[in-house]
């Protein structure tokens, strides 16, 4: 179920990659050939990039593609690996990412409340939608991490895989 959410997050997120390519190309052509630079391309591209990273975070976690320094890890048995992942998630992932999620919610609410804008350009787009997306991305990452945590724990205790 959570895997599906992460897959969905990936499915949605991937369109931002296409968007990024199209906007970047459009801006170049429009500025160079038509002398008509846009005021929205710069911020749109930054936000599309952010959407890729944040929506990709849970998808990448599901695919176990977050880089590990696996000098020792790769030599461990599956059970030891599960043990490392359970302890690692409890120590390195949940405390930090729960706090980051909580902060991202606080700042998203603040952005909606004060009508925060981005001022990299004089387009001044509202910051709230992106701040919200940022929080959603972290929430999905936490869900995915919780699902993997449950599976690893089950495997550790029962020595058989869940599902």
């Amino acid at each position: 179920m959570i895997d599906r959410l992460s897959a969905l997050s990936g499915a949605v997120g991937k369109w931002f990659a296409v968007l990024l390519v199209l906007v970047g190309t459009f801006e170049t052509v429009s500025r160079h050939f038509f002398n008509a630079p846009t005021i929205w391309a710069y911020d749109s591209m930054c936000m599309a990039g952010g959407a890729i990273y944040l929506l990709g975070a849970s998808y990448t976690y599901m695919k176990d593609s977050h880089t590990r320094v696996d000098l020792l890890y790769s030599r461990c048995s599956d059970r030891t690996k599960a043990l490392i992942d359970v302890i690692g998630a409890a120590v390195f992932l949940f405390p930090l990412m729960i706090v980051m999620f909580q902060m991202s919610v606080t700042w998203a609410i603040r952005a909606w409340r004060i009508n925060e804008v981005m001022f990299n350009s004089f387009w001044y787009p509202p910051a709230a939608p992106y701040r919200t997306l940022f929080a959603i991305g972290l929430f999905l990452l936490l869900l995915q991490a919780a699902a993997k945590f449950a599976r690893d724990l089950y495997f550790l205790v029962r020595n058989e895989t869940l599902d």
Partner: peptide, 15 residues
């Protein structure tokens, strides 16, 4: 060296 994804290890040390 624990082998846990490096991004979270680095962030958590700072945390």
């Amino acid at each position: 060296l624990s082998g846990f994804p490096i991004a979270f290890v680095i962030g958590s040390i700072a945390f």
